[in-house]
Design a protein around this nucleic acid. Structure first.
Lengths: 248, 248
DNA sequence: AATTTATTTGCGTATTTATGCAGTATTAAA
DNA sequence: TTTAATACTGCATAAATACGCAAATAAATT
């Protein structure tokens, strides 16, 4: 890989995400972090990006890394790896928001040819980075805290779709209450997502298992597949298996 | 093997792969790396490829376009400052994509209370950062290169809206052809945006004035207000004023 | 055809550039 | 404050390049 090629790749990433992490680039470009750092330094000296601790930021969008960086938790990588095995060419897949979903998107093979639907702006942005897949965004009023579309219209449009899979980045899940969340408008959209998919997959790091929040999205039986970073045979997952969920 | 033949071969490789390595070529053409280097140097001097350490790259590989947009940030700040004066509490405002629009959003006063509609994912993300405004995203199929919604459905939904203002981050504008752009799907959305707004405002850095691209978005008369970083009395803007545009 | 002339090519060597590594310093997150 | 991640420094190495020169090739001339 030529230096200029790396530079072009880095600038492309910056254009799409407004930020890059040295650690990510080092893997994606199969170069040492040292090299990446020197690349970023050069591009910074050229004045076309801003180098910061841990990576670099776009000049035009100066968010802080802290605000929206995914300090890629290894748990989420494991979950992403298991989840992507479910996706096949030609599928229509519904995605929620959340950092676990972002990890899933990052782990998708470049040659995958499928269509993804989402209501989450960060999810959409990440999907746009993939070379082959088609992305559909269901828009409407955006809810600031969740950075996603909400409202009756969204639910209506979701009801007109029949997807193969629905991946939910789940905040809280337990046997008694099923999937729960904080915001009324969010849970309504998530319900609509579940209804319009043949299979619902919940992605949860084990910390989130057996936690509850204020409002119910769906009963535990409505979830078809549960993916955590744990071994499927783990003791913690037994009760879920008993209720008929497939555990990956 | 004649020099001309090698040159032809090298250019062919560049066309296909966008890059060549001196080491590869040396083997493929059974010539010393020295010779190859001299070839590449000549072709570089002719301006038909870009020589770099280790080989050469296609000219189209450059990312200088992005550089320009970043370099002209101060101009964009001036434009943003002028543009925001047009926005009042309670207005319904349509925004396109582009870095100029992003600057506009950043310059919006926190206490502003208005509703913004957009089809651009980065624009939406930036809008979500603002504490008071309401954001509506018109979704559909997303076009990767433009990071925005496109398609008949978007145009349809835009036609159902009546906005106070439409701000277009403009790539190319001139007297003869009006606003022009590259992509058919993009120009269709932009047209729909213009139709659904009472007033259309074009934001263009002066470098983009009097430039033309392949496809026409709208005639110059359909633009109500033109904002550049220049003084409204600037000589460059006179022809636009003569055609009835308000210059800020 | 032979000779001259100009151009092209390859090689050895010195130099520059690119990259990774190890150890230490610095920074930021818990 | 502690701790983990990241950055910096100097160094080592390998690869790429520049340069001068001589051999080889092509082109032009006689």
């Amino acid at each position: 890989m030529l230096k200029k090629e790396r530079h072009a790749y880095i600038m492309h990433e910056i254009d799409i995400h407004n930020k890059v992490l040295s650690s990510d680039l080092s893997i994606q470009l199969t170069a040492s972090e040292d090299t990446i750092r020197r690349d970023l330094q050069e591009l910074d000296e050229k004045g076309i990006l801003t180098k910061v601790h841990g990576g670099a930021l776009s000049k035009s969008f100066h968010f802080t890394l802290k605000n929206n960086s995914v300090y890629s938790q290894p748990e989420k990588k494991i979950i992403a790896f298991k989840a992507r095995e479910l996706i096949r060419d030609g599928m229509l897949v519904l995605l929620s928001g959340g950092t676990t979903i972002i990890e899933l998107i990052k782990s998708l093979p470049p040659e995958l040819n499928a269509t993804f639907i989402t209501v989450s702006i960060p999810t959409a942005l990440e999907l746009l980075d993939h070379p082959n897949i088609e992305v559909i965004f269901i828009g409407n009023k955006l809810l600031k805290v969740a950075q996603m579309s909400v409202g009756a219209e969204v639910n209506q449009r979701l009801s007109e779709i029949k997807c193969d899979l629905c991946f939910l980045g789940t905040n809280s899940i337990d046997i008694e209450n099923g999937i729960t969340d904080l915001d009324l408008e969010v849970i309504e959209v998530k319900r609509a997502m579940i209804r319009s998919a043949k299979k619902t997959v919940s992605l949860s790091i084990s910390k989130k298992l057996n936690t509850v929040q204020r409002m119910v999205v769906c009963k535990i039986e409505e979830v078809d597949i549960l993916i955590t970073e744990l071994d499927p045979g783990d003791e913690l997952l037994k009760p879920y298996k008993k209720r008929g969920l497939e555990i990956l």
